[in-house]
Simulated scan of single mutants.
Amino acid sequence: MKVQNKTILIVEDDVKIRKLIKLFLENDGYEVFEAQDGEEGKRLFKEHDPCFAILDLMLPKTQGEELCRWIREEEKSDIGIIFVTAKTTEDERILGLKAGADDYVTKPFSPSELVTRVDTVLRRTGTRCQKLSKKGLTLKPMKGEVTYKGDTLELTSFEFRILEYLMIHAGQVISRQQILDALYDMNQKVVSERTIDVHIRHLRKKLQAITHQSFIQTVRGMGYKFDA
């Protein structure tokens, strides 16, 4: 089953404001990572791959606007981003939005309002954060990415879809015909069950090369099972 990633990175140099935001977000069910400057924000972003970021515009080392551009352009990430800023002029707000932010909140602000704005942005962007995670293996359907403890697996599109389908049904025995029915348009292409075996063999080889373990089991006479 796909799970919603509810991790948020806060980059704010004011400790009191940062702790207050964290408290309200955690009360709303989010997992929060904190950074006090832009460089620490970059490090935590790479380490935790959060689903959302709350950035102060005025930050030590790397400004919030620059950090936002880095997330968008260097990391190629389209997560939700909100600026928290004391800047109130229209030009400054527009500049922040042009850097890639989805919204902004001006100081002083209500923490409850900020959480509401986060929830609102996530309703538009949250599907980008769905992921499947089992035993160190993480698959992100919207990004088309598979990683194992931070290392990326290079899969073909069909290998990716097979792995996603098996992970969604982890622990269940899935027949070759079920995979064919779920992943192929049988009105357009005739595919044999033997084709599934070939794809599974290639997928296993790639998984074992990087994980040194077998995630996909063969259930003789029945099909395949992702080891949950």
Score class of each variant (00 low, 15 high):
205 K>P: 00
204 R>P: 02
193 E>Q: 14
150 G>W: 12
153 L>I: 01
176 R>T: 03
144 G>P: 04
215 F>N: 07
151 D>I: 03
151 D>A: 14
185 D>Y: 09
188 Q>I: 01
160 F>N: 04
187 N>E: 15
167 M>Y: 06
216 I>C: 13
143 K>E: 14
160 F>A: 06
158 F>N: 11
167 M>R: 11
205 K>D: 07
174 I>Q: 13
217 Q>P: 00
144 G>K: 08
156 T>M: 10
136 G>W: 08
141 P>V: 01
178 Q>W: 00
217 Q>S: 09
195 T>R: 13
155 L>R: 07
150 G>K: 12
139 L>G: 03
175 S>V: 02
151 D>C: 03
134 K>C: 00
134 K>H: 07
197 D>K: 14
136 G>D: 02
218 T>Q: 12
150 G>E: 09
216 I>S: 10
141 P>L: 04
135 K>D: 10
156 T>R: 15
183 L>S: 08
205 K>L: 08
195 T>G: 02
141 P>W: 04
206 K>A: 08
182 A>Y: 01
191 V>S: 07
141 P>E: 04
178 Q>T: 05
190 V>D: 09
198 V>A: 12
186 M>E: 12
147 T>H: 12
210 I>R: 14
186 M>P: 01
161 R>P: 00
174 I>V: 15
138 T>I: 14
213 Q>K: 15
178 Q>K: 13
213 Q>C: 06
174 I>W: 10
152 T>H: 10
215 F>W: 09
210 I>A: 06
178 Q>F: 00
188 Q>Y: 10
204 R>V: 00
215 F>T: 01
136 G>V: 00
208 Q>T: 03
218 T>K: 15
134 K>V: 01
138 T>N: 07
205 K>G: 00
185 D>E: 12
142 M>T: 02
195 T>L: 12
139 L>T: 02
178 Q>V: 01
170 A>D: 05
176 R>E: 07
167 M>S: 07
151 D>T: 08
189 K>N: 05
198 V>Y: 14
157 S>T: 05
194 R>S: 10
197 D>G: 07
199 H>E: 09
135 K>R: 15
203 L>A: 07
175 S>E: 04
195 T>A: 15
